[in-house]
Amino acid sequence: MDLFKDIIGQKKITESLSGAVLNNKLHHAYLFTGSQGVGKEAVALELIKIVNCQPGAGKKGYCGECATCRQLGSFASDDLLYIFPTISKAADTDKVIKEKSVMISAELKEKSKLKGYHKFSFKTGRFITLSQIDEIKYFARYNSINKSRKFVIIYPAELMNKEAQNSLLKILEEPPADLFFILISENASFVLDTIRSRCLNIHFPLLSEKDIENYIGKYHPDVEKDLIPDLVSDSFGSIDTLSKLLTDSGARLSKLHEDLYEIFFDSLPPKTVNLTDAFLEEIKELSDTEIDFILRKTLNKLLSSTFGEDRKESNKIRAAVMNDFEKFGVMYRRNINPRLLMINLYLNFREEYKKWKTR
């Protein structure tokens, strides 16, 4: 039996979690992993509503009408602590603090409207800090007014700094009763092994093209039908990427993809360095989702134009190039010298390209 009704795809995961709810066998801590935009946060938010819905009592899915469902759906519940990288700074004035509060509130409303299928459009902070994890201790101190189960969502979990992860580990070693954790991560390798071992790990695969079509039909029914095939293809199984393509930024992202392709395929030093600097300046304010789209689209075009359909002989080199691009994405998010990362990525690709051409 599947208690989830808002989730696009991920049927095996929702059925497994439904079984855990129905059999009262929820794990005290989950780690949801996978690419951006595949439904990790949406599943987490609906799971919390299913467990705490008053009429449903975890047996029929959530009703969406009771006070508990409405409060959880609008992020206004005392039974949900949502932790993400802080955007506050010590030097913020009262005016700035208020402006940031209004901005976050508006983004949470959009997240609620789209059932969790919405990523913050503003640039979050670099890390989740110790003081934020310390809030869990205060949150856990008081019982729920509605006798509900209390949940902590930490997203992205890989952005907890060392002190924050060590503090969370101590809490997970002796978790308070009726307090559940859902850690969400796109790069779980940056989460301590000892934290991962105390969580039930659930990996979310990319969405299928049919899933993306279903999402468009459900949440964006006004999209012109002749645009749907390209949108589905360019989404790479990610609703986050699709959402960006549906905005005015879609054309700009396509232009940046062409710029990056030119750097790798058509440029030679010293022109490469100048193009790289200009490109990095253009993308410095982009979100992780937007950068992922540019990297994936460029990678696909590079592989296609370099190796064509010859997959058998090029498998090893393809894997090396794909691995280099994946590493770049991870290290770029960690704010490690973007210029050096990009030049190394370029040099590695040109080396693999040379091997292929002189084989």
Rank of each mutant, 00 (worst) to 15 (best):
G34I: 12
N315D: 13
N335R: 07
P221F: 01
E282M: 06
T68N: 02
A140K: 07
N23I: 04
M342S: 08
L286D: 01
D310E: 15
T129Q: 15
I171A: 06
L114S: 02
V232H: 10
I184K: 08
T289Y: 05
K210F: 06
S18I: 03
H27E: 03
T272Y: 07
Y82I: 02
T272K: 05
P55R: 12
K119G: 07
L245C: 00
F325M: 11
K95F: 05
Y353A: 09
L303N: 04
I7W: 08
S16P: 09
E158K: 04
S105I: 11
E326C: 02
F84N: 02
V152S: 01
F325T: 02
L347N: 07
F32H: 06
R70V: 11
K297P: 00
L268F: 12
D78N: 15
T298L: 03
T241D: 02
F180P: 14
L169I: 14
D6G: 03
K354C: 07
K162W: 07
M322I: 13
S35G: 11
Q71R: 13
G329M: 01
V43T: 11
E163W: 03
N146A: 14
Y261H: 15
L302T: 06
A157I: 03
R318I: 03
H203C: 12
I83C: 00
Y142L: 07
S254I: 10
A57V: 09
S185K: 01
E326N: 02
